[in-house]
Amino acid sequence: MNKEKQKRQIRMFLDGKGGKDVDAFCIYQWIERCHFHSWWDYALRLAPSVPPNSLDQHYHKRLDFLVSECRKSLEQFNRECVQIRNSSGQPQFSVPVPFMEACLFDLELQTCGVTSKGFALEADGRRVIFVEEITPKNCIFRLFDIDAEELSSWLRSHGFEHLVNGVVRPKREGSQQTAQMRITWPDATNLIDSLVSHLKDIRPVVRPAVARTAPIRASSYPASGKMIQFRVTATHTLRSYSVITFPPEHRRFFPGYKIPFILQTDMGDIETQVASGTSRSEIGDPDEGKYFSKNLKPWVRGHLNEIEEGGLVTIESVEPGQIYRLSVKR
């Protein structure tokens, strides 16, 4: 039995849709398969279905070991992941932090359409990728604006030839359907920037023509004082993504949207920028953006306990619009 068919069979059993002919030894074999394929959550859900003394003592010892290993692996994985929540606010999927950082903060994509199967990534108000069949090791990308042949050709021409084998071919030759590809999380993190840029080029966003001034490349607005202080209340976002969200009233203390500036810290100088605008944000806009996170991970990790314990994040203006000093004061 192939991997996917076995997984469907286990899922059906856990959902109560099958299992009349399933005995304790069959469940033990499933748990071994789950351990091997990193389906750790399935293994933990299957374990209570094996009654005490239903197997040889050797198998029960092996079962205890497998369940313990799956529990440890799942706990480790969850510590390195962020929870994708459904519309009710309940955790639906665990996704590695580096991938979500690349999506949300480097590319400023939005998550939407969370279902029991997966979630969508949206760029400029349009869905570009649906992420599904999520496991601790990999997932499947379903791409909305490209078919399998076009995707394979693009991967080869952009240095991602090693990912072509993961492209799912249509069952019927010549049929037109959206491309799918199975991909590991590290590869997904490396690919997402180039892939999203390509998908945007395929079907660019058409916006109504409006009169706009030229983007402001350097902030022409004075800093709103020499120093600001605030406490970070969104500690989950801080811990997961190393994001420092400042109060909206201090927006003009910093340079314009996506204009680089330097933060002097006790761990060295950090170049960062204000991010999280809208699809219509112009570079340099003094009112767009809500936080900064670029290159901040080492500093946040070094001061996480102080910030979570209520320390005041203090930012002083050294050279307005260019250089600032970042610290935490208890």
Results as ranks from 00 to 15, higher is better:
Asn2Ser: 13
Lys7Met: 03
Ile10Phe: 00
Met12Phe: 08
Met12Lys: 08
Asp15Asn: 13
Lys17Ser: 08
Asp21Ile: 11
Phe25Asp: 06
Cys26Tyr: 10
Cys26Arg: 15
Trp40Gln: 01
Tyr42Gly: 00
Ala47Thr: 01
Val50Tyr: 01
Asn53Lys: 09
His58Cys: 03
Tyr59Arg: 08
Arg62Ser: 13
Phe65Asp: 12
Val67Arg: 07
Glu69Phe: 01
Arg71Thr: 14
Ser73Tyr: 06
Gln76Lys: 15
Arg79Pro: 00
Val82Asp: 09
Ser87Gln: 11
Ser88Lys: 14
Gly89Leu: 04
Glu101Ser: 09
Glu108Val: 10
Thr111Asn: 13
Ala120Trp: 10
Arg127Tyr: 13
Val128Gly: 04
Phe130Leu: 14
Pro136Met: 00
Cys139Val: 09
Leu143Phe: 10
Ala148Tyr: 09
Ala148Val: 09
Ser153Val: 10
Val167Pro: 11
Pro170Cys: 04
Gln176Tyr: 09
Gln176Ala: 12
Gln177Pro: 02
Met181Gln: 09
Ile183Phe: 05
Trp185Arg: 08
Asn190Ser: 12
Ser194Gly: 05
Ser197Gly: 02
Val205Tyr: 08
Pro208Glu: 10
Ala209Asn: 10
Ala211Trp: 14
Ser220Pro: 10
Ala223Thr: 14
His236Leu: 14
Arg239Leu: 05
Arg239Cys: 03
Ile244Asn: 03
Pro247Met: 00
Arg252Tyr: 04
Phe253Asp: 06
Pro260His: 03
Asp266Asn: 10
Val274Asp: 07
Thr278Gln: 09
Ser279His: 05
Arg280Phe: 07
Ser281Asn: 07
Ile283Asn: 08
Asp285Phe: 11
Asp285Cys: 11
Glu288Pro: 05
Gly289Phe: 06
Lys297Thr: 14
Lys297Gln: 14
Val300Cys: 13
His303Ser: 10
His303Arg: 15
His303Val: 15
Pro320Arg: 01
Gly321Val: 06
Arg325Glu: 12
Arg325Asn: 15
Arg330Cys: 15
